[in-house]
Design a protein around this nucleic acid. Structure first.
Lengths: 216, 216
DNA sequence: GCAAAATACGAATAAACATTCGCGTTAGCA
DNA sequence: TGCTAACGCGAATGTTTATTCGTATTTTGC
């Protein structure tokens, strides 16, 4: 377990004028391009500054260090996926099975669309692992999934549902990552999402109706 | 997509005398210790050499570069998990359901036992991604799982089985990684493995008997 | 015991990078 | 118009690291 003193990830200075706000936005956009094009290994402050058309010095006025940039990108990513999950999986006006399928399709597609960026962010994960926001994001997702499992398997025990919720969330995110690395067509991604939905949905359905332990 | 010229990972020189063979073994052992203790970020050739009690120069006589060491460790890891998978999931003397459960338990436990090393190797993955052996290992695993799916869902179409095999393998490996990061007790790991086996097994059972598309 | 090959060594080299700092430039405001 | 704070710059600094290479030591074959 590498001990890390967790250098600060909050901005050194807040942009006040419009031009500096633009500069920060430019840097974040450039950072995405650098990650996608050069990968996490070659993600350097100089490269990001160059790509954004600003100087390193300017970059360091608003980001205390390199990790802060990556962390900001990951935060934005978490925000997006969290919202999407709440909107789709938490949509109580639809039947659980439909929700699950729609969620998995949307989630897998989104993962695939941004595959290079997510891959690179994963590679860079050691730089911002144990970030405080990470726990928050997990909790948010867990809450949504727990609500969903309660709706999908109302007759299961609380304990069963707890484990199931974790399993469902882990399966979704893990498979999403796996799928995004395969470079599949839209139709293939749909097939994967539907298969995953069958697998997870079937499991929850059986949890809800009688605790059978062994299948044929 | 970061273009990488893939520097060679094969040894610069083969150990001839006993002492150099021992040196190579020492280096690999030390590399594991450094990865576990300091993490992938701080995995440097000097640290490995120090830990092994040899000089950097000696290290470079048998490994062309740093990646070669990591790659060798990953190769060994692949070899172990591949053998284990064949032995457990490919054991045709047992019923599919039992095989699946036993495999997942063993696999999850093995992942957890070596969690620090695997975590670190994952972090270091960018250094040896696209390695030739990687494809071989995937093919080997895929073959075993395909055989298993055929046994577990003999009445499914070939196409269904193909997708199912990929899904099962992806679920196993992805969940294994996820579980290993949680620091669970043995009992908890078993619970996870059994839940995963239920989920995957149930999916395959339904594939085998009639192609139902929607559940309740 | 001896020459040649193999092995081991570790200081030295060179490159890459994160981060700083002093100075010139621009925007806001009186 | 002029003053001040905010902004922007990029060469310079200090550190870390992978890798090399000339030399010293050990083993092997005889």
């Amino acid at each position: 377990m590498p001990k890390r003193s967790s250098p600060p990830t909050n901005p050194r200075k807040q942009p006040v004028q419009a031009r500096s706000a633009q500069l920060v936005a430019d840097i974040l956009q450039a950072a995405i391009r650098v990650l996608e094009r050069d990968g996490a290994q070659r993600f350097t402050t100089i490269r990001v500054a160059d790509e954004a058309g600003v100087s390193v010095g300017s970059l360091y006025q608003y980001f205390p260090n390199k990790q802060a940039i990556l962390y900001q990108l990951q935060r934005d990513e978490w925000e997006r996926t969290g919202s999407s999950l709440e909107a789709l999986l938490g949509d109580t006006t639809r039947a659980p099975v439909d929700r699950l399928r729609a969620t998995l399709r949307a989630f897998f597609h989104s993962e695939c669309d941004e595959a290079p960026l997510r891959l690179a962010l994963d590679d860079a994960a050691p730089a911002y692992r144990d970030a405080p926001q990470s726990a928050e994001h997990r909790a948010r997702s867990a809450a949504v999934v727990t609500g969903f499992v309660t709706a999908a398997a109302p007759h299961a025990t609380r304990k069963q549902r707890g484990l199931a919720a974790q399993l469902v969330l882990a399966t979704m995110t893990s498979l999403g990552k796996d799928v995004s690395e395969r470079g599949l067509s839209r139709a293939e991604v749909d097939a994967w999402a539907d298969a995953a939905a069958d697998m997870v949905g079937g499991y929850l359905a059986r949890l809800g109706a009688g605790t059978r332990r062994n299948a044929t």
